[in-house]
């Protein structure tokens, strides 16, 4: 329920539209929403070594990482 409320809240906050010509700053490398590929190994560590799967925590299947 909390998740739904937050999702609706964020989606609804888009009333102040940013025009395409106003998004120069959003093109900067650190402003990209997706994690860089170089961060994948850190995500893998989190998945194997912690209860960290899901919600940007990486995949949950494949590989045991079991040592």
């Amino acid at each position: 329920m909390i998740a739904v409320v937050l999702l609706v809240g964020v989606a609804g906050s888009g009333c102040a539209t940013v025009q395409s010509w106003e998004r120069g700053t959003h093109a900067l490398a650190p402003m990209q929403v997706e994690d860089p590929a170089a961060k994948l190994i850190e995500r893998s560590i989190d998945v194997y070594r912690e209860g960290a799967v899901g919600a940007n925590g990486g995949k949950s299947g494949g590989g045991c990482g079991c040592s």
Partner: peptide, 11 residues
């Protein structure tokens, strides 16, 4: 506003 970058550079 961000004057240092060209417009329309959305990711």
């Amino acid at each position: 506003p961000d004057p240092t970058l060209p417009p329309d550079q959305a990711p």
